[in-house]
Design a protein around this nucleic acid. Structure first.
Lengths: 190, 190
DNA sequence: AATGCTTCTTGCCAAATGGCAAGTTTCGTC
DNA sequence: GACGAAACTTGCCATTTGGCAAGAAGCATT
């Protein structure tokens, strides 16, 4: 819960009264490894802030292959903005790949906070834009890199994450097969 | 100018008075092919709405290679949100690859519109989030595709655009060499 | 500790892509 | 219309990556 508040404070000011209000609107939940926080077909009716663990966002392409779109670690919001904003079903899955702790605020409570706290919308918008920009800037350069560079950059960005992610999922994110990733890892260690 | 208004109206309501106000704050400019709308090192002090033409966003990686990050066509905003929001220098270039027409609103005028028009911020935020989500959703699946699929999907998405883009830039966007793109095109035409 | 399941590694070969260089085309300028 | 520069195509070969299958290792349950 404190992690959420600290994160929000990076994007705007909140007085103690407002902080208490936010806390009263949020609940903490646990999500066990391998379980899904949301699944394709459902409509997002809440936002979740990841305070512990790693979640991967994935979907299925026309060939039925499972594609890992990106990973989220601590201090990130886990929400399909499109589904949440427009109240339409998401097409993605959010799966815990470690045990996770999430702070949840329902859509109704978000709207109450929006009406009560001056500047709340501005904070949320900054966070939303930053979150999406991070994704673009992380994924975009990967197209111009070969698999080894993609892997090394991922390792550099998430040094503590690579060992916790099943190679299957990491390979899918990097756009290569698990076999290739295995070879790349061997080659690097030599 | 009408294109901008029509686009805004997709994201919220505006009455005739408000529409006139917006028009009075905006100016239309032309940008000749190959010229840059913005360049790395400068701070974004305005937003631009592309009403005619195609712009590509590119940058240079550590090896000095020029990487095309994405293309923008009509009815898209051309702005580095990070630079505009935080007033820090951008690291990207926006280059017209056809003659372009842009509708410009300065940051000061944007702030005036924000203070004058109820719901303006909400409209802009929806557009911003949609724009970024489009980029993520367009680029992300490409990692899992081979070069031919990436090319065909690009053609499907922008059927009228592929012929207008120099192959050099398109190849860079697809993450392959111009040579490879040439071969792929030949193979498809057989 | 044994079992069985999943994940990871490795080898073999095929397919895709890159690097380089030469030839061809396109396009703008004079 | 001639010229020159840039972009595009093609051939040759090296490198990267994928596909498949077998073996090895890790991990949970019993």
């Amino acid at each position: 819960m404190e992690k959420l508040i600290n994160y929000l404070l990076q994007f705007g000011q909140l007085n103690p009264h407002q902080i208490e209000l936010i806390k009263s609107k949020a609940i903490t939940i646990k999500l066990a490894r391998d379980h899904f926080y949301f699944e394709a077909g459902k409509v997002q009716r809440e936002v979740a802030f990841l305070t512990e663990g790693i979640i991967r966002i994935c979907y299925y392409n026309r060939d039925g292959d499972e594609i890992t779109k990106y990973f989220l670690d601590e201090n990130n919001f886990v929400v399909d903005v499109n589904s949440y904003t427009l109240q339409i079903p998401t097409v993605e899955y959010a799966q815990a790949i470690t045990n996770c702790e999430l702070v949840i605020i329902s859509r109704e409570n978000m709207q109450e906070l929006s009406m009560t706290i001056i500047g709340w919308d501005a904070i949320i918008n900054k966070i939303t834009v930053k979150g999406m920009a991070d994704k673009v800037n992380r994924i975009s350069p990967m197209l111009a890199e070969d698999a080894t560079e993609r892997y090394l950059n991922f390792m550099k960005k998430f040094p503590n994450l690579a060992h916790r992610i099943p190679q299957l999922y990491l390979a899918s994110f990097l756009g290569i097969t698990p076999t290739s990733l295995s070879r790349i890892r061997r080659q690097i260690s030599e």
